[in-house]
Amino acid sequence: MTAAGTSRRQFITGSLLFSAAFAGYHAWGRRPWAEPPPSGELPGPQGTTLVAAFAVMLEDDAAAARAAAELDASLDADQLEQLGLALKVLEFAPAGPLTSTRFSRMDRARQTEVIRAWEASRLGVRRQIAATLRQAARFIHFSQPSTWAAMGYDGPWVGK
């Protein structure tokens, strides 16, 4: 098999993210894993939250949209379920349960404040979500050859 034929699952997983945050949450009634879960995609609203969060992490809207699409396409159903749940928390309670403004409807400056606050939050769940989104966005972005020259990285040797 070839690398190109592989699903491009990226630097993020269900276990990595959210089992702690949602300890009580399970896929009700599902029997122990018999088959690899199929891939899917995030529902539209959560996709919007993801792009907005990535735009804060990467400070570049186009790169954020690309990275979000790539992540979305690469996760399996279990991972998407967990990521979707985390994005809902970010979308609907960005600054605590009493906030009325949704994350994706804030301006960029406010979104950035929220992400910074989550990164330094006393709540482990928030720190974890923020750190994981940042890692995923940056892993995807900096694996692109267009970013390498600025780092002095001359890329793979195979094929040269």
Binding site: A3, T6, R9, T13, I140
Partner: peptide, 15 residues
Amino acid sequence: DQMYALLHRDAGGQA
């Protein structure tokens, strides 16, 4: 991007 996905558990994200 290709090799973590191909070779590592959860593309390196198991934690």
